[in-house]
């Protein structure tokens, strides 16, 4: 495109665009339109069926100034993200490390840890409602064995979000799988060299494993965060009447969007909220992306 491109660079550019063309075509033909449409809708009073008048930034003003639950839902979501993302990343790396030692029964363990991600929908949420029952629930029964009186998880506003975090950590199979794949891709030579130098297990983990899997850690953090910001199905099913109770403690950002869009048909407002969330998540991602130069190990030296 630029004048300064050499013939080779042009050839490279053409190849690059050719390789990414499936996505570009998909974006132009299928997914991009609706996405841009929702951006436009965020500046209108769009209700999906009868109106779509341009109202400027009125939706955004309502969001910041007039919506009594907007900040609460954002706060709840941030709290959840801050708790869930580190917890699931650390646990997934830990499990993958254990699995990578290939002790007896590893294939079975691997299967077991992946299983929860396979489950989805109402059945899982129901299981957790039962498990978290304060008296007869299994979680508190186990805690009682250790002399701990567990909280009444889903009924106590202070414990509802940790309950959902627990569910998320329980289903960390996908992350675990990614770490496992990437750990296995670390060259054996590196470890052998370290062994000769007499490095301990922890040293090897810190000096070799972590840097080598850092691209995947980066990926896991970003996608986990994106996913956690969009938490909503759990809250819809697990709060007693789907409105984020008790005391609005499960009123997450996306639950609020969903309610606005589908019970009150304020899709314009819902779109505005969605795009504001995109701005937040994108900002965090770009900061991460910039910071990743300092800790993510790549062959190219760039991301």
């Amino acid at each position: 495109m630029k004048r300064g491109m050499t013939k080779r660079e042009k050839k490279e550019a053409r190849a690059g665009w050719l390789f990414i063309s499936p996505w570009v075509i998909g974006f132009i033909c299928l997914t991009g339109g609706p996405l841009l449409f929702s951006l436009y809708a965020s500046f209108t009073n769009y209700n999906m069926t009868s109106r779509m008048d341009f109202i400027g930034v009125a939706n955004y003003i309502r969001m910041f100034k007039k919506d009594p639950v907007f900040w609460k839902s954002l706060g709840n979501t941030l709290y959840y993200v801050l708790l869930a993302v580190p917890a699931s990343c650390v646990c997934a790396i830990f499990l993958a490390t254990l699995l990578n030692r290939k002790v007896k029964g590893t294939p079975v363990f691997r299967m077991l840890f992946y299983l929860p991600t396979v489950l989805s929908g109402v059945a899982v949420y129901q299981l957790w409602i039962q498990l978290l029952a304060p008296q007869s629930g299994l979680v508190n029964s186990v805690l009682r064995l250790f002399g701990i009186e567990g909280p009444s998880w889903l009924a106590d506003p202070a414990w509802t979000k940790p309950s959902l975090v627990m569910m998320r950590v329980w289903a960390l199979g996908t992350s675990m799988l990614l770490y496992l794949s990437s750990m296995n891709s670390v060259s054996k030579d590196l470890y052998e060299a370290a062994d000769i130098d007499g490095a301990t297990f922890l040293q090897k983990f810190r000096k070799i494993t972590l840097p080598q899997i850092s691209p995947i850690i980066f990926f896991d953090i970003i996608t986990n965060m994106t996913g956690a910001f969009q938490v909503f199905q759990e809250a819809l099913v697990m709060s007693k009447n789907g409105k984020g109770d008790p005391a609005g403690s499960l009123l997450f950002y996306n639950l609020h969007i969903y309610d606005e869009a589908f019970t009150r048909y304020n899709m314009g407002y819902a779109s505005a909220m969605a795009w504001f969330l995109l701005v937040i998540v994108m900002t965090i991602t770009l900061i991460n992306l910039a910071a990743s130069k300092y800790w993510v190990h790549t062959e190219e030296g760039e991301t």
């Binding site: 129901q126 409602i129 039962q130 978290l132 029952a133 304060p134 008296q135 007869s136 629930g137 009444s152 998880w153 889903l154 009924a155 106590d156 007693k240």
Partner: peptide, 15 residues
């Protein structure tokens, strides 16, 4: 509260 919390949680699932 504890008593009723646990009561509602035990039966809240509708199961």
């Amino acid at each position: 509260k504890k008593e009723l919390d646990s009561f509602s949680a035990e039966f809240g699932s509708g199961m």
